[in-house]
Design a protein around this nucleic acid. Sequence first.
DNA 1: CTCAGTGCAAACGATTTGCAGGGCC
DNA 2: GGCCCTGCAAATCGTTTGCACTGAG
Lengths: 140, 140
Amino acid sequence: MRMTCQRRVILEELRGVCTHPTADQVYEMVRRRLPRVSLATVYRNLETLSDCGIIQKLEMSGTQRRYDGNPATHYHTRCLVCGRVADISVEPCRLLEVPCIDSNGFHIRGHRLEFIGVCRDCREAEGSTDRTEAGPPCIS
Amino acid sequence: MRMTCQRRVILEELRGVCTHPTADQVYEMVRRRLPRVSLATVYRNLETLSDCGIIQKLEMSGTQRRYDGNPATHYHTRCLVCGRVADISVEPCRLLEVPCIDSNGFHIRGHRLEFIGVCRDCREAEGSTDRTEAGPPCIS
DNA sequence: CTCAGTGCAAACGATTTGCAGGGCC
DNA sequence: GGCCCTGCAAATCGTTTGCACTGAG
């Protein structure tokens, strides 16, 4: 794998953030340093880099793909309001990764786990506009 | 919600299989009974039915969406060779669903977990060359 | 009768690909 | 100097949407 200028900048930019950007966000970041770069190049390099295990491709819950400069196994939380993705400090469940045969004949080789939640910003935005603020103490 | 003919057939067909079909597979199934149905109608109804909690939308790792006629919470295994999806008999981890605030300020409301493996057919197809050993602890 | 639901076609958005040059090793 | 990599544009693919019409309640 050749370390071209584009590839290096993409990797540097991705490692420089903790936001798990989408391909077009990476494109915008890279474009500030390499104005003539193309989106296709960004896609191709993100693909190549994740194939090599240098970065991580995050594919879950039917949304736009995201990329993570940290190749180590760890889990993420996704905000169901704004889509933001953050790392979460849950230990990887190695138990679930022990190869085994399940009842349907599948040879299990791994798992994907992500958490769904609401980030602080979105909670504050929601909270200031509706129901939660005005309610009297709940006596249930 | 009106129970139109299209909606009823889509639901019946989806409940009649355990293959977790994609929208176009549902379309083909429905088309055998309603030849003039449109793919857009299938998409719209699958959306409506899952919004109502009657069926489940499965949005898994970067592939085509799939649908499940069983609305109860359960996990799935996906074959990394052929993409087939099957139920897996792992108890939902209720522990992970207890609302809590993580270290990044996310209010966790749920999680998504899927298992990745190779189905029996694909193992046999690629198979005689490699690992046939029985795996240790089995999850299911 | 009314309006949610339909079929059709066209739009859409994310990602991929064909191609003719350009530059890393 | 070979050939991997690039930029550009167009293609692809799953999914969604605008519109006029239809049929369930």
